[in-house]
Amino acid sequence: MNRRLRRRLLSGAFIAATALAAVLVLLPLVLILFDLVARGASSLNLEFFIRNPRAPGQPGGGVANAIVGTLIIVGTAAAIGLPLGIGAGVYLAEFGHGKMGWLVRFVADVLNGTPSIVIGVFVWTWMVRPMGHFSALAGAVALAVLMIPMVTRTTEEIVRLVPGALREAALALGYPRWRAALSVVVRTAWPGIVTGALVGVARIAGETAPLLFTALGNLNFKTDLLEPMQTLSLQIYVYATGPFAEWHRLAWGAALVLMMMVLVLGLLARYVSRTRFSGGR
């Protein structure tokens, strides 16, 4: 009886401890969201979305250039990074048993741990300096470099989850190796791969450091990939550290919009993964 009581108490204590940890994990997220809505929501009006920034200190103006810039740079980064990352991940899972696979995996892991500002400096050295000017393209490349190892590794993990029996069934049916990999294994893993890709995009959407030396930022509305371009993250960085109350207000608004974008990507990823990755039973 005594032992049973002791066990119950211990069990209760551990459950309480894990529950506490879960709450503590959620707390920052809830606070951030709450704060952003409380301070940023009032800035969100039509002008905020369709106007560009005004001269420093003047009231009004918006962040249309930063919203469009974010979409362009993140979109370009995804266009570069997703095919490479997914391709490399499929290679690792399906063919990466040898030394080459080991090497790619190792490099991806090291790159995954590389601070994003280092990647920014790297792209500055190899793109911005030779080209002679900052550009949205350089920013997109920096974000792509950041995203590729993440997408590679998640793709590999997901493809590995597909039962080997499916691959064998395809091979036994006379599928060539590459076709078994693509039209059976990758196709089965596809919802999971898309989820991983969306998470990767969401992860880079808010990056600031790699863009400081590459996309630089721009007060004007730009759509040319070869010119410096503004993003929400850069705008937040400049406005939040600036001296004007009006800037601070816009920074809160921009932060809320950026957060919403990431949230939508996250929800989308959730939805896609729920549409069922049903790799056998």
Partner: peptide, 17 residues
């Protein structure tokens, strides 16, 4: 060759997609 020799496995392996 494998197109001339069909095979069925222990567990059913329909392609789920």
């Amino acid at each position: 060759l494998r197109r001339k020799i069909g095979m069925v496995f222990q567990r059913p392996t329909p392609f789920p997609t």
